[in-house]
Simulated scan of single mutants.
Amino acid sequence: MTPNYAASVRGVPIPKERVAAFLNADGAASFRGAGNCATSHNDAAPARRHRQQRRWATQIVVIHELALRTCAERGLAPPDDILPMHLLTIPETDVADLGSIVAAALAHSPAARALLAALEREQEVPETAVRDYYDRNPDRFLTPDALRRGADPYTDPSDIQPYEQVRDAIARELRHAAARRAFFDWLDGARADVEYAEGHEHPGDPTHQDHEHRH
């Protein structure tokens, strides 16, 4: 008998209706907006595309559920436990950096965003790492005048903004990147507690016929 759930987390089922509700509201639009990041089969048959949409949407709903549980375990202010049904814009840079699944999960799930914010607050960036980033990337810190002139960042040190002026911005960027890595580490571990029903596997799972490795 085919189970009436899309996935289960530690034995607790996630109904197929939650995945269908997400797709019927905003999920299909998000999937299309992700373009090749979601699937490389742009001209896929409708049935095949629908299966990939369903698998993709299952991942969003599962990540939301995992994040809800982790927020509760951490004592974070509990976000609304119902997946928002209004579309939030997913920046193309996030899709490129995170993959369409994680980018969409963060866009749609307040629990995932709350967890990411908590992880970012926990990151400690050593001063040596901030300084090293500054020293290795002078092209990123050219003064406005040097940019207008197309100056070579490795020629005249006066063309580079002083470390003290950009130090805090660098630290924020490194902390943000570290939080995203921590989020991926958390997700890798949390997914170990998930079992998927047939037809709801990860889009990149090579065990199903229509798997798509690219995210």
Rank of each mutant, 00 (worst) to 15 (best):
M1C: 05
Y5C: 07
S8V: 02
S8T: 09
R10W: 01
R10V: 01
G11T: 13
G11A: 09
V12A: 13
V12R: 13
I14T: 14
K16F: 15
E17Y: 11
R18W: 15
V19T: 05
A21Q: 12
L23G: 04
L23D: 06
A25E: 03
A25G: 12
A28G: 01
S30T: 11
F31C: 08
R32C: 02
G33F: 08
G33D: 05
A34W: 00
A34L: 02
G35K: 06
N36H: 09
C37A: 14
C37P: 03
N42I: 13
A47S: 10
R49P: 00
Q52H: 14
Q52F: 12
Q53I: 00
R54P: 02
R55A: 12
W56C: 02
W56N: 02
A57C: 08
V61Y: 01
V62H: 04
V62W: 00
H64Y: 05
L66D: 02
A67N: 04
L68E: 03
R69D: 14
C71T: 08
G75F: 10
L76Q: 01
A77V: 08
P78D: 02
I82K: 10
L83H: 05
P84K: 04
P84G: 06
P84C: 08
M85R: 12
H86A: 06
L87C: 07
I90T: 02
P91N: 01
P91A: 08
T93V: 12
A96W: 03
L98C: 02
V102S: 02
A103H: 12
A105M: 09
H108P: 01
S109V: 06
P110V: 01
A111N: 03
A112Y: 00
R113L: 06
A114W: 07
L115P: 04
A117S: 07
L119T: 00
R121P: 01
E122V: 01
E124R: 09
V125P: 08
Y134W: 11
L142N: 00
D145G: 10
D145E: 12
D145A: 13
L147W: 10
L147I: 14
G150A: 09
A151K: 05
D152Q: 09
S158R: 15
I160M: 08
I160V: 15
I160E: 05
Q161P: 13
Y163N: 03
E164C: 11
V166A: 08
R167C: 15
D168W: 14
I170F: 01
A171N: 07
E173V: 11
H176G: 00
R180W: 15
R181F: 02
R181G: 03
A182S: 15
F183W: 11
D185C: 11
D185G: 12
L187Y: 04
D193C: 05
A197E: 14
E198N: 08
E201T: 06
E201L: 12
H202A: 02
G204R: 15
D205S: 10
Q209D: 14
D210K: 01
H213L: 10
